[in-house]
Structure formats: C-alpha cells, structure tokens
Simulated assay, not measured.
Amino acid sequence: MLYREASQAGPGLWIRIQHRFGPRMTEWMLATVTALWGAVLVMNPNIFDQPAWSGFRAIFRDEAVVGWIMVGLGFLRIGGLIVNGARKNVTPWIRSVSASLGCCLFVGITYCYWQSGIVSTWLAIYPVFAVVELLNVYRAAHDAGESHAPH
C-alpha cells in the first residue's frame, strides 16, 4: 500500500487520510449529525415543549444541556477520526468506542421519539442511524483485529 511507504508528514499524511476517509464516511457523517442535532437543541430553547418531543421532556429537563453534550460528543468524534486518519499506526478502538456511543445515542433518540406516541419521519431516520452505527462498530472492531494481526 502506498501510504505505508510515505513519510509521516506531508504527502504521506494526506495519502493516509484519503485512503481511510472513504470506508469511514458513515462515521464522519454520523459524527456531524450528532453535533448538528445538538446545535438544533441549543438554538431552540423550547423544542422539548412540542408534542413530538414529549419523550425527551420526560427524560431531560433542559434542551441546552442535552444540546451542548451532543455538540461536544460530535466534535470529539470528529477529532478522534482526524487523529485516527492522520496517524501512521491506526487506533481503531477510538472509532469502536465512539461508534458504540453513537449507536446508544441514536437508540436513545429513537426511544424518546417513540415515547411521544407521534409517528413521524424519525421512524425512517434514527433507527437506521443506530443500525449503521452497529456496522461502524463491526468495521472498527475488524480493523482492530487486523491491526493486531502479524504482518
């Protein structure tokens, strides 16, 4: 593979990021969704008062707190993906843990919407995101196994 022969910085770094970005695109997308989902909560201080969000209100008291946590988790995951993509020796456990947390988040979001009793587009989105996160966990665990295999 070309990126193994390249230097640690400069073109080698760029080649590693390009090589790893494609297979991890869903991780990048869901990290971004997490951060933006949190930003929506931060920008809408009374969103939990809407009927479709009543399940969230039953569990959480403050949209802003949940929102900032989601923004933080999204950016932490993006940071982990950057570090993971830039390093010569991959650290798939960062990806595995963040995808596991992402799966829990999207299952939680699905549960909260389900608790509202209102069927909406959430049913077509968040359960699918949770399943994609399970696939991301599998891929990261597979990469972890490969990184520990003798070359």
Rank of each mutant, 00 (worst) to 15 (best):
L36P: 00
G79N: 06
M29D: 02
A64P: 00
M1L: 12
R16C: 06
I47N: 00
V71G: 03
A35S: 15
R4M: 14
G145E: 08
L123Q: 06
T91H: 13
S96R: 13
Q115H: 06
C112P: 05
I109C: 00
P92H: 06
A99S: 14
G117L: 05
R4W: 14
L36W: 08
V40S: 06
R139D: 11
H19E: 15
I17A: 08
I118Y: 13
L13C: 13
F56I: 02
G79Q: 08
V128Q: 06
R61K: 02
L76C: 12
P127N: 07
Q115Y: 05
N44Y: 00
M29K: 02
Q50Y: 15
A149Y: 04
C104S: 12
H19C: 10
A9L: 15
A141T: 09
N89M: 07
W37H: 11
G22I: 10
G117M: 03
A86Q: 11
A86E: 07
A130W: 10
G102W: 08
H19N: 08
G79F: 14
E5V: 10
I59D: 06
R24N: 15
L76I: 10
W14F: 14
V83C: 11
A130K: 04
T121V: 09
Y111K: 09
Q115V: 02
P11E: 14
